[in-house]
Simulated assay, not measured.
Amino acid sequence: MSNDLFEPQKLESDVDPIRKAQQMMRPKLPKRFYKDVSVEPRDEGHVILLDGRTVKTPGKMVLALPLAELAEAVAQEWRDQVDVIDPGAMHLTRIVNSGIEAVPARQAEVADAIAAYAGTDLLCYRADGPERLAQRQQAIWGPVLEWAEQDLGARLVLIEGIMPIDQPQEALAAIRGAVGRFGALELAGLYTVTTLTGSVLLALALAAGRIDADQAWAAAYLDEDWNAEQWGQDAEAMRLREKKRVEFDAAVLVLKMLG
């Protein structure tokens, strides 16, 4: 049974290699066509069964996962579909589809795309005022930057304002080396965390256990939360943020289980 509601990964050089595949879906949602969802260990890994039929990726590859716990989490997404199958609510399925089918074909390219965030990483852009905001940024972002320097050998330059500067090539190479040590499934999760937070440093620190999911998420939205404290929350922005958090948590689950 192919979960062909999820479009195949298209890794053209001029498109976002994972996000495009994760966001594309059929406009009309089909009805749920199965009753039972189960997980079965096989030689290729733990597979998900819908009424006994093996779930496959859009490219007809068996959706087999190395850990039973991860397969059960994916299976639960299929169980949670009630009247229709909504890929937009199945973030974990989309991430593992990418990790199984799309990333292995272009693993170096995906790693490059993740590491490229270091050139304009969120944590390097500091407010030139007010002082309390700058202090909060240093208190929350500073330890992650220190960890990157000490553990990864990546010393990035801090920038006041929004004008970009070139980061040291040695630091960028160190981050690329760190990203390159992840496998395909982990890269799919790391990519999602990086793009949602705007920081490869947060993604790597999270994967390494240096910070937890709540800390990473709060760090990513530090500036937005500061503005909300000053001017009040934007209801629409908060709704969008809540949706992104669900996707973020799915990616964190992949990194946590495989790390």
Rank of each mutant, 00 (worst) to 15 (best):
P164W: 09
R136V: 00
H91N: 08
I165F: 09
A118K: 04
T120Q: 06
Q167H: 02
P143W: 13
P143Y: 09
P130Q: 14
D166A: 14
R94V: 03
P168T: 05
I162L: 15
I95S: 01
A89P: 00
L145A: 04
A115K: 06
P143A: 05
Q167W: 08
A154C: 03
L123W: 12
M163P: 00
E160M: 08
Q169V: 08
A113T: 07
Q137D: 12
A148L: 10
G153P: 08
D121Y: 08
G153Q: 13
Q169M: 06
Q150N: 11
G161P: 08
I165R: 10
D128V: 14
Q167R: 07
C124A: 13
A115E: 08
T120Y: 04
E131G: 01
L172G: 04
A116Y: 03
L156P: 13
Q138I: 04
E109F: 05
S98N: 00
A173W: 05
I162K: 15
V110G: 02
D128M: 14
Q167A: 13
M90S: 01
R155T: 12
P87L: 06
L123H: 11
Q167V: 06
R126T: 13
A111V: 03
G99R: 00
L145P: 11
I162S: 15
C124F: 02
A89N: 10
L122Y: 10
E146H: 01
R155V: 11
Y117C: 01
E146K: 04
R136F: 06
A171G: 05
P104W: 07
D83C: 01
Q138S: 14
I165Y: 07
D166R: 10
N97T: 14
P168S: 08
I100F: 07
Q167I: 07
T93E: 06
Q138M: 12
A113E: 10
Q169G: 00
I159R: 14
R106H: 10
I159V: 15
A127L: 12
V144F: 04
V82T: 12
Q150S: 08
R136M: 11
P143G: 02
E170M: 07
G161K: 13
G88R: 07
V96Q: 09
Q150Y: 02
V96D: 05
A105T: 02
A173D: 15
E160K: 15
P130R: 14
L158R: 07
G142E: 05
L123A: 10
E131T: 11
L123I: 07
G142I: 08
V110I: 04
P104T: 05
V144G: 06
L133E: 11
I114N: 00
V144C: 07
D151Y: 02
Q138A: 15
A171E: 10
L145E: 00
G142V: 09
E131Q: 12
E160W: 09
E149V: 05
E131W: 01
P87Q: 03
L152R: 08
V96G: 04
M90T: 09
E160D: 13
E170Y: 09
A111P: 01
V144N: 05
M90R: 01
R136T: 05
H91S: 11
L92N: 00
P104S: 03
L92G: 01
Q135E: 15
I100D: 03
S98V: 00
Q137K: 10
I114A: 02
I85V: 15
L133I: 10
V96K: 04
